[in-house]
Design a protein around this nucleic acid. Structure first.
Lengths: 180, 180
DNA sequence: GTCTATAAATAGATAGAC
DNA sequence: GTCTATCTATTTATAGAC
C-alpha cells in the first residue's frame, strides 16, 4: 500500500493525488487507507524516504574504480534513480520537495548525512576552518533528468552522466579559486 | 492581480493555492479573478514566466569582468533571484516545475534559448558534432538555495556563490575528459 | 480487517445584481 | 468592472455494518 502511495505521489505530486486513487492503485478501498494511516498527510510522510538501497549503492561505488569522490557519488545516485524499485520513493521525495516541507527536510537531512559521509571516504579537505561547499550534495541534479527533462539529459546514459558530473563535483570539493 | 497570483503560487505552490486566496491577496473578489482569467489553470499559465529582467541581467553580466561564461550566467541568475520584484515569478516557475508540465516547459525553453545564447557569447565550442552538455543550463541550482535550503547555500553571498559556481559551469562546458 | 455509506468541508466555476 | 450568492463537483475523513 505504501508502494502504491509512492507510485501515485511520484507521478502526480501530493496535491493532485487523491486517497481514492492510491486505494485504487493498491487494489483496496479508500477507507482502508484512512484506517491505517489516519490522514493523507501521515500517509505521505510515511511514503517519503531515501531508499535503503542508497547507502548500499554509495558503498558499492566507493569500492569501484572511479577516479574521485564526486564520480562515486554521482554514479551511486544515478544507479538508484534508474532502479525501477527505488525510483518512486526518490521521485516522490524530490518532486514533493518543491511544495512540501517534510520532503525538503528528507532531502536535506540525507545530503547532510549520507552523502557527506560518502564523500568523506577517500577525500581529504585541503585548508582548515569552516569551508563552504554549496554543492557537496547534489540531490537536485535529477530534477533536470526526471522532471524538467531538458534535452539531452534524459537521453544521456548514466555512464556518460557520471563521466560528466564526476569531475564537476570534484571541482566543487576542491575549488580552483576559493572565495572564502 | 497577476502579481498577487505569483506571490501566492510562489509561496504555496499551485495545488495549495486557492483562487479565493489570490483574490484576497489582490484585494478583490474571487469572482473577479474568474471573470478575467476564466480558470485557475489559465491564471496560472499567465503567472508563469522568466522575468524580463533576466535577459537584461545576462547582458549586464556579459559586459562585466567575470572570467568565464559560466561565471557570467551564474551571476546573472543570482542577481535576479535576489531581486525582490523578480523573485515571485522565478519562484513560481521553479517550484511548479516539479508538479506542472507548463512550468517545466517554461524552464526548459528558457534554458534552451536565453541561457544558451548568453553562454555562446565569448565561448567557443571545441570539437565538432553534436556535443552533449547536460548542465549548460542550470535552472535547478536555486532549488538548493530557495527550496531545500540546505546549509550553507541559503546563507552564502551571491558573490561567493558566483565564485564557486562559475568555474564549475565552465567545466561543464569544457569537460576535462569528454565521454561522448 | 475490509467495505458501504455518508458526513463535512473546500474549491472551482457561473449567474446575475449593481 | 466589481461584488453577492450559489451551484456543483471533489475530497478528506468518519461511522458503522459484515
Amino acid at each position: 500500500m505504501l508502494d502504491a502511495a509512492r507510485e501515485c505521489f511520484a507521478e502526480r505530486g501530493y496535491g493532485a493525488t487523491s486517497v481514492r486513487r492510491i486505494a485504487e492503485t493498491a487494489g483496496v478501498d479508500q477507507a482502508l487507507v484512512h484506517h491505517f494511516y489516519g490522514t493523507k498527510e501521515k500517509l505521505f510522510v510515511n511514503a517519503l524516504e531515501i531508499p535503503l538501497r542508497m547507502p548500499e549503492a554509495l558503498a558499492e561505488a566507493a569500492a569501484g574504480d572511479r577516479v574521485g569522490p564526486g564520480s562515486r557519488v554521482a554514479l551511486a545516485h544515478l544507479r538508484v534513480w534508474e532502479d525501477a524499485s527505488a525510483h518512486p520513493a526518490m521521485m516522490t521525495t524530490l518532486r514533493s520537495a518543491a511544495t512540501h516541507r517534510s520532503a525538503a527536510a528528507v532531502l536535506r537531512d540525507y545530503a547532510k548525512g549520507s552523502i557527506r559521509e560518502a564523500l568523506g571516504k577517500g577525500h581529504h579537505r585541503r585548508g582548515g576552518g569552516t569551508a563552504h561547499h554549496p554543492d557537496r550534495h547534489n540531490p537536485d541534479r535529477p530534477l533536470t533528468r526526471h522532471l524538467v527533462r531538458l534535452a539531452p539529459v534524459p537521453d544521456t546514459s548514466p555512464q556518460e552522466l557520471t563521466a560528466r558530473l564526476g569531475p564537476v563535483i570534484d571541482l566543487h570539493l576542491d575549488p580552483v579559486s576559493p572565495a572564502a
